[in-house]
């Protein structure tokens, strides 16, 4: 009887280990899946500003020198943004197009390891493959930086990297390659920019206990997870509700929203502040039609409150 019980226990443990192994195995595309396409660095530059890559990866001297190293101190540990400049040793200069697509869409490194979701691939996975390729083509035009960045300092239990596979199963299922449609309505374009490269939800959507987005409260506002290392007890920023709820953008017209991105003025002519300043200044590089598309989409969302 005892022998049988221990046999069952062993069976369950083995099954559990196998299930964990398969569920947490990083999933990558193979390079043959990429379309034959000549990337357009000009469109890549637009996506660079939408994605705000510079906010985390730029050096203090130039938004286009992507040496990384910025500390992101959060309740999950401290993460250092990697060097994504063209330096082949310290940056990503040696990456192939499929290495880059796997990082952006699957959150998997060229060595086949999971990235921490501090890198917002759970949004980038909504990007069209041609846009991802265009972005790499733009990054390839930027200068190298030999900045060697620090290793991440995740808190327990997040230091067990393989576990990120479970997180991905729950919050960021492996991406399938999506081709860019030839035409999008302004609303579709706005949705794409917000839900994909713009990753607005990374700050404006509340997270659950595992740091995954609470999708029922999408864009309904959230307290920042960032901690000020100089004063860890200081109150963190509130990232406001950007749905058309009374607590959010109810009184903002689409024109108000587009003008806010363009200039940084709210409808009452207070200015943007905090970490949104960089986001706004990045978005100010976009053509007016895209800013209008974003406004159009935000105003079309269900008005919800968190």
């Amino acid at each position: 009887m005892l022998k049988r019980a221990s046999g069952i226990t062993t069976f369950i443990v083995v099954l559990g280990v196998l299930a964990f192994y398969f569920l947490t195995t990083p999933v990558s595309f193979d390079s043959g899946k990429l379309p034959r396409y000549a990337p357009d660095p000009a469109n890549g530059e637009l996506l660079f500003w939408v994605g705000g890559c510079a906010s985390c990866h730029a050096s203090s001297t130039s938004k286009l020198l992507l040496g990384g190293g910025k500390a992101l101190a959060t309740v999950y540990g401290t993460f250092y943004s990697p060097n994504i400049s063209t330096d082949p040793q310290f940056g990503i200069g040696g990456w192939s197009m499929s290495d880059f697509a796997n990082a952006m869409l699957n959150g998997v490194s060229p060595l086949g390891e999971h990235y921490y979701p501090a890198f917002p691939y759970s949004y980038y996975r909504n990007m069209y493959i041609e846009d991802v390729m265009d972005l790499k083509a733009f990054l390839d035009t930027l200068p190298p930086s030999s900045n060697k960045t620090k290793l991440n300092e995740p808190g327990v239990p997040y230091s067990f990297k393989r576990g990120i596979g479970l997180w991905k199963q729950r919050y960021s299922a492996p991406s399938s390659i999506q081709a860019r449609p030839s035409e999008l309505s302004p609303l579709q374009r706005g949705q794409y920019l917000v839900d994909g490269p713009g990753h607005c939800g990374a700050c404006h959507t509340p997270r659950d206990e595992f740091g995954g987005a609470k999708s029922a409260s999408y864009l309904a506002g959230a307290r920042s997870l960032e901690i000020d290392p100089d004063s860890p007890d200081a109150r963190a920023e509130w990232n406001p509700n950007i749905t058309p709820h009374a607590d959010g953008l109810a009184r903002w017209s689409e024109r108000d929203i587009a003008y806010f991105f363009e200039m940084g003025f709210k409808p009452d002519f207070d200015t943007v502040g905090g970490s949104m300043v960089e986001v706004q200044e990045n978005l100010a590089h976009l053509p007016t039609a895209d800013l209008q598309a974003i406004s159009n989409y935000l105003k079309s969302l269900p008005a919800i409150q968190y």
Partner: peptide, 9 residues
């Protein structure tokens, strides 16, 4: 406002 004002509810 970027550095010295806390964006709050």
């Amino acid at each position: 406002h970027e550095q010295y004002r806390l964006e709050d509810e």
